[in-house]
Write a protein that binds this DNA or RNA. Structure first.
Lengths: 199, 199, 199, 199
DNA sequence: AATGAATGAGGATTCATTCAT
DNA sequence: GATGAATGAATCCTCATTCAT
């Protein structure tokens, strides 16, 4: 890697950590520069503005955050469907809390801007929608395999999506719960057949 | 109402809107003052600092945000349990989007500070926990009434809590889904009996 | 005393203490009002401005700070001259440090403005000059009585004046010295006859 | 000198003048910046805060204000003792009033903070004490040389210290006196032998 | 005789950004 | 590739002061 790229990446990584710790707004370029060991104006050699840095941070963070990474749909069959669904969720939870929480917090901050017409909004929403759509297709796949009831499969998929997603949020906020058990229940519910109490 | 209280409340309400629109950090006292039609330093007659204003905004927003308001537990019986559970969730969704979304976005921003050791952290977490505990007790009540399977009742409760909570988030971000249907599925799942696929 | 006068005086006294503690500039009207238990704008009923209050404080403090109070010239005679001179100086030193030091510090602050063309300048200088002149006349009186050498009597007087004055300053700053002994030496020197080493 | 150092020093020198003219509190960073011809925030490139600037000003002003500079003790011998003592005092008086008075006034303001627990207090008191101790050792030296009476040598030293010091104050306040004559008298008195009127 | 509410002027400080070197 | 020096805009905040009540 050339020096330029190296420094750029160091800047991005320092920015991620600092943004996560103090928030994007409250993180000054001076702090980031200090972390990397260069001076504030030097950042401008790598990024045209703070906004561009933020953007690059966003891209860097979420470029490989995709549904298929956690739930490789083509690997799912009748035998392993439930288990792989369960494990896929578990794999989304932060293992390495030290590094993961800050990142999640930062994701959350990007989300905030979604509703504000901030320009990440669409990207974040797109990411959420990718996961919603991922779960939908996965359960449709399950329905075709006959392991999931066809009726309401989409709604069940969305419930799953909402649960995994929010589990990560709650973990991040420090709410103590047995998340594995909760996720297990959500997965199990996906396979249950039965009457609807509410129409 | 005295003039002081009136202005104070106007300030709080203006602050809520502006905080929600631009974020707390990016909302300056000047903006708030302008919105209310007074001058910037006049704010200091009502609040000792921006921090105090933020605090008061927080209190004002969430002082009457309680589980019992949406799910009055003592009203739930065998006959109405499912229906009231469903309706309770619906009542939590923003009706009046114009006013509700900003408020939710602001809640989200307060949440962000939860993980950062910000001083609202505890309060926000406490709120979340109140809802988790509310759902737990509600389903325990349902178990006693015999409408809910006793086993895993707690996990089912938490799934419900995570779903309602996240539905509001997604609405806020502008993700278009048939939320009523999703919530209906989540509620129905709560009452289903059946085998667990995953142990 | 009428209520008006009472409050005015309370304000002045509170101001003296606070000015002495924090400096005139750093003492806000709010602090003074709080000390007296009224509100800030109420001060304007008693004084037209902060400047006027400062002025009245000045007058109040130094209205009875006169040479004759410490050195009643007509009481001095051949027998008691040295002793009374010595005692007069001692009586100028702060007995009640708790109350005196702040007041002296404030005097010092007023003095600062003397050189700045501040409008107390003249008054402070006048005060200093009154003491200089007081000592001068006192020693002239002593010369007439024959207890002091006529030659250089004025210079000796001024030395005395400078010493007493500065002793108070040093006490105030917290410099620890045996001031009584120093003053005694200064007084004794005043009566010594002898050759001049320097012409 | 590098540009940074140059500007820093210009800032310090401008600050000294302005602090002396208007007082530290009443001198704004804007005034200082304007004097030097840079903008207000640029000051922060050189000093972390106004407080730090004040501190540096203090250090700059008094780093070479030492007793030995005026009274090089090892140069004093039987022959020249009185004369050098006299001349040393004279050399402490402001020659170049234009530049010296402001500086003295500023010293005075620093002194004010001495009693207020301000953080320069100790430094100022230490300076005063250096001069007191300097005079004490000088007269002890004189006593050993036999030109000064051993008895009361310390008190005589302190009287001298108080006189020089206060002469500068009085000059600064604009009190018109024949200071040279007064100082001559003080010096002469130091050498006089004779009885004590007061015990 | 005093207060409640508000204001205008000004102050320190922060920060993204620029540009010559 | 990076820095030193500086800037303009904005922000929070303080305070003496006003005035209707």
């Amino acid at each position: 890697m050339k020096k330029r790229e190296l420094t750029s990446q160091q800047l991005i990584e320092a920015a991620i950590l600092l943004f996560a710790q103090h928030g994007i707004e409250k993180t000054s370029l001076a702090m980031i520069a200090a972390e990397v060991g260069i001076t504030k104006p030097s950042i401008y050699y790598h990024f045209a503005s703070k906004d561009e840095l933020v953007e690059k941070v966003f891209e860097y963070m979420f470029s490989d955050y995709h549904f298929g990474q956690y739930f490789p749909i083509s690997d799912f069959n009748e035998q392993n469907f439930a288990e792989k669904l369960f494990q896929g969720g578990i794999s989304m939870f932060p293992q390495d809390k030290e590094n993961f929480y800050p990142v999640m917090r930062l994701l959350n901050e990007f989300m905030l801007t979604a509703g504000r017409g901030g320009h990440f909004g669409e990207a974040v929403v797109a990411m959420q929608q990718e996961f919603l759509e991922g779960f939908r297709q996965l359960l449709q796949h399950g329905a075709k395999l006959g392991v999931i009831e066809e009726e309401n499969a989409d709604s069940r998929a969305y419930v799953l999506a909402l649960v995994v997603d929010n589990i990560t949020s709650y973990m991040m906020m420090g709410v103590k719960l047995d998340y594995e058990k909760i996720w297990k229940e959500a997965v199990n519910a996906t396979f249950r057949k039965g009457v609807d109490v509410i129409e």
